[in-house]
Design a protein around this nucleic acid. Structure first.
Lengths: 156, 156
DNA sequence: TTATTTTGGTTTCACATGAAACTGTTTCAA
DNA sequence: TTGAAACAGTTTCATGTGAAACCAAAATAA
């Protein structure tokens, strides 16, 4: 069994490609789960998730914590408001700044989804040994850091 | 230091979320690299990548190998044809079936990009120890398999 | 043969998304 | 103060994308 050599790029072995396809499949599975049961998109769910964990954030704080941009947050928030899953008021000190929190209806949904989400994650994880899980976490942290230090910098 | 308990979902620790954000950042970096230098989208690049490695595939074979759907392949192929990066003729035996291959111009681009792609991957990998890389590969394979056996089956 | 179904690939439609422009508010400097 | 710049958030526009409808060719059945 010998090496095929370095001057071939086979997509199924190319790390960024594999990462993208795996993650897309997982995202689609989850998106479908949320969509069919709760009529909720992933951006909407992300907003709910951070607010469920930490209420009274502004839109831009939500954006930070979800790695979404402010446009995406704005759209998700407006859909959530329309369905009374969120409450919004504006800061007294700075009237530009919104203060977002789950409504009772939102909290209810949050409490239903959270176990499903955790469950799904558990199902993924039970298939991994303890050190596999540990190294997955390390790896993700590393990849996160790497991208921050901007490997693809040569964009002149 | 005690556990925060199971009944909280913190997005930055949620596996599918981390996978999605890491992979999206990497994809965006690469997409930008291809776009600025070669005016090429990721779907286009994927088509070129499989054809560079294995010419004379049909559109549906390309779809299989790239994990793209046939619509995406069709669009990528037509853009590539328009710019003479691909040649297409149709099978004699089955006149529906296309036979796709890189044109000379396409091959030229392929030969330029391939080392960049491999380089980027290498840069990611050099930051990982040997066993980290090995376990990353194992993990990706596992996650790929897991999704195939369809964890999110309860869509009734 | 001729009808029916299947298959390779394209087009259309409706919706999602990112970038840039825009609105209203606050801050800072003259 | 007042005018410029910065900021939070929204809207617009142009493009991308997935699902379903569609077209033509081929396989299958009658």
């Amino acid at each position: 069994m010998h090496d095929i050599g370095p001057d071939r790029l086979q997509l199924p072995r190319f790390l960024p490609y594999r990462l993208a396809t795996v993650s897309n499949r997982i995202s689609r599975t989850i998106a479908q789960m949320y969509a069919t049961r709760f009529d909720l998109t992933i951006p909407e769910w992300r907003v709910m998730a951070v607010l469920g964990d930490e209420p009274d954030l502004s839109a831009s704080e939500v954006a930070e914590r979800t790695a979404m941009d402010k446009v995406a947050v704005s759209r998700a928030v407006s859909r959530l408001l329309k369905r009374d899953r969120l409450e919004r008021h504006f800061s007294k000190e700075d009237r530009r700044r919104s203060v977002l929190a789950l409504s009772d209806k939102g909290k209810d949904i949050y409490r239903q989804i959270m176990p499903l989400a955790l469950d799904y994650e558990t199902q993924l994880k039970t298939r991994l040994s303890d050190e596999e899980e540990a190294s997955l976490n390390r790896l993700l942290s590393k990849l996160e850091d790497l991208e921050l230090e901007n490997l693809g910098q040569k964009t002149e």
